[in-house]
Amino acid sequence: MLDSSGGISDPILTVDKVAKSFGGVQAVREVSLQVERGSIFSIIGPNGAGKTSLVNMISGFYKADQGSIKFDGTELIGRKPNGIAELGIARTFQNIALFRGLTVLDNLMLGRHVRMKSSVLSCFMYWGAAQKEEIHHRKRAEEIIDFLRISDLRRANTGELAYGLQKRVELGRALALDPTLLLLDEPMAGMNQEEKEDMVRYVLDVNAEFGTTIVLIEHDMGVVMDISDHIVVLDQGEKISDGTPEQVKADPAVIRAYLGASHLQE
């Protein structure tokens, strides 16, 4: 097993011996990892490896049974999802999770919600500070719309969009939080080749243009090997490998997990 966690100079996220079980099933067993600021970090592994459980613990949906998750020095375990979002961690979901019945712009403006301050009363009285704030946030939402090239869709109801576009809008909504850390849970699942290429380009652009650190769960090995700075491999809740794409690719433990032990012996 390779371990390069000692080599990280500026970790934005530090997961330390985190475990989670559901009833008798150990979904995640004492996993530790460090994500370098500004990097693209991928978590891979077979189905049921505990990837989504881990991301759910980082974003606060599950409470870890033990261990610690630190984001820029702040402990995340025990915080509610909205509190974690406020710290600057945004995520997308495996299944499309856009708000139905709302337009693309509304979905993005909801992403801005966390950065807005006005109260319920002031939004009943739509003027003054609330209006100024609205304009400011609308501008940021429009920048993201331009960035993702969905300007012709801003008034479209999200339910009417093609699958790939819905995924792109979901990315946009997460970006609207101005996250420093973006968790992407299988953003390319179910996409055709062209949609995948688009998404890969957007992920790279987000990383390069906004400096956003990206934690990616993805099944497409080609994509993962191409774009990741660092990869962690989980299998049955345990971390079995941790390193650069080249290191992980050559790790016998990874080959065993993916292809079965018999393949190695041939």
């Binding site: 949906f61 999802p81 909205n82 708000f99 709302l102 919600h113 909504r173 939080l177």
Partner: peptide, 14 residues
């Protein structure tokens, strides 16, 4: 949004 999904709303900081 909250009515549509409590989970996703939470992730959006609501």
């Amino acid at each position: 949004a909250v009515a549509d999904s409590h989970q996703v709303s939470g992730a959006m900081g609501i």
